[in-house]
Nucleic acid binder design. Structure first.
Lengths: 219, 219
DNA sequence: ATTATCTATAGATCTATAGATAATGC
DNA sequence: ATTATCTATAGATCTATAGATAATGC
């Protein structure tokens, strides 16, 4: 970190993204001026426009950069169901990876998902990706759920509930709680508990998830 | 609703609050100008300052008006534990009331809780009330949880997870999902499932919650 | 020629204060 | 006298465009 607070060794464009990520997370989109972003980078406000057509494009880029990896990962996991891994194991893997990603992110970038400005048409693509993610949570959850639970919580509701659980980490970080890898695990376990699974089933899923994650890492 | 979009029959001050609630929920705090609020009410921008010292006081008032009832209710419920109701029953009642309140609110006012501006010192009182609410969720959850769950999810984490679950409704509404009282129930049930409780225990808690809520309504 | 900055600046907007005005209530 | 509005306006922003400048790469 240099005096301006942006890691050096990044390209100009990347420095802008890093500065904006921090400011948008703290003060929101409308609450962050282009001047504030530029100041953190150490350039003039107007110089931002060489790299981005507008402030909204900076946010759009941050969003696409932050969901893309999750979507890709999710698809590689779901492709192994049910041959290589049970729905419960896949869901455990997905939830713990998502929680871990949100936890490890530089400035709690997950808070960007909560910004009211995302309701704008401009960010529809991002919202669609989230719906896609929620659907996958819903499908895996539905397949893994205890019948009693599946009958009262449909696939769509289940997706919303499970994604909401995985994103608990965002609130924990916002509340300045110290989080660790253990939290990723307990959150993933909570997802399975919501499905009505018992302790033994949760442990099986945890083990399966560990195996499949090790397999993916080896690829 | 009159032409400006604010219900008539409210005092000037209340009209301002109603207009601001809608705009803050949709566009955020910094994304809403005092002019936009005034326009919706049908007065001049400067006239707002007769009723409020500043834009931030409008938000502060909306926040205090929206947590206060929940906090009061929560305390009246917790006072009946464990004599009149088990921790599981109390948690079911609390979660379903919170979900129902968030669901019934005029413009999805719960989205205000997600605004980045709330991190400002100015809103510390509101944040403290939320911490208080989360602690109660944590205490009830801890008392009701299956031992295996209680040992991996401490009271503090549990509080965060349970509150997060109850607030799933905010996201459902944001995503334009139609919600009903049934969702309040399934969300409350999900809270108990997270604690490691089985179907029979959830049903017992549901019945207890119904009884205690009927009792409170009779007071 | 391209890349990445800079200065100058337009033009819009934003919050908030000061003080006038009109209606209502004592 | 109090309540609730209004007009006028200060003063500070904010986003974005135009065009100059300087360094690097062919």
């Amino acid at each position: 970190m240099n005096a301006e607070g942006v890691p050096s060794g990044l390209s100009g464009r990347e420095q802008i993204l890093a500065a904006a990520a921090e400011l948008f997370s703290e003060s929101g989109f409308s609450g962050t001026s282009t001047r504030a972003i530029a100041e953190k980078v150490g350039i003039r406000q107007q110089s931002l426009y060489y790299h981005f057509a507008g402030k909204d494009e900076i946010l759009a880029e941050l969003l696409s950069g932050s969901v893309r990896p999750s979507i890709d990962f999710v698809e590689s996991i779901e492709a192994r169901v049910p041959g290589d891994v049970s729905p419960a194991g896949a869901l455990f893997a997905l939830a713990s990876i998502d929680a871990g990603t949100l936890r490890a992110t530089p400035h709690n970038i997950g808070t960007l998902y909560l910004l009211p400005e995302l309701q704008d048409d401009r960010y529809e693509q991002f919202r669609r990706q989230r719906v896609q993610l929620r659907r996958i949570y819903g499908r895996l959850g539905s397949a893994a759920a205890h019948p009693d639970v599946a009958s009262s919580l449909g696939e769509s509701r289940l997706g919303a509930v499970l994604l909401q659980l995985a994103e608990t980490v965002i609130q924990l970080r916002r509340d300045d709680e110290d989080t660790s890898g253990h939290d990723d695990d307990t959150i993933a376990a909570s997802c399975l508990r919501v499905l009505g699974l018992g302790g033994a089933e949760v442990e099986t899923a945890r083990a399966e998830a560990a195996a499949v994650l090790a397999g993916l890492a080896a690829d």
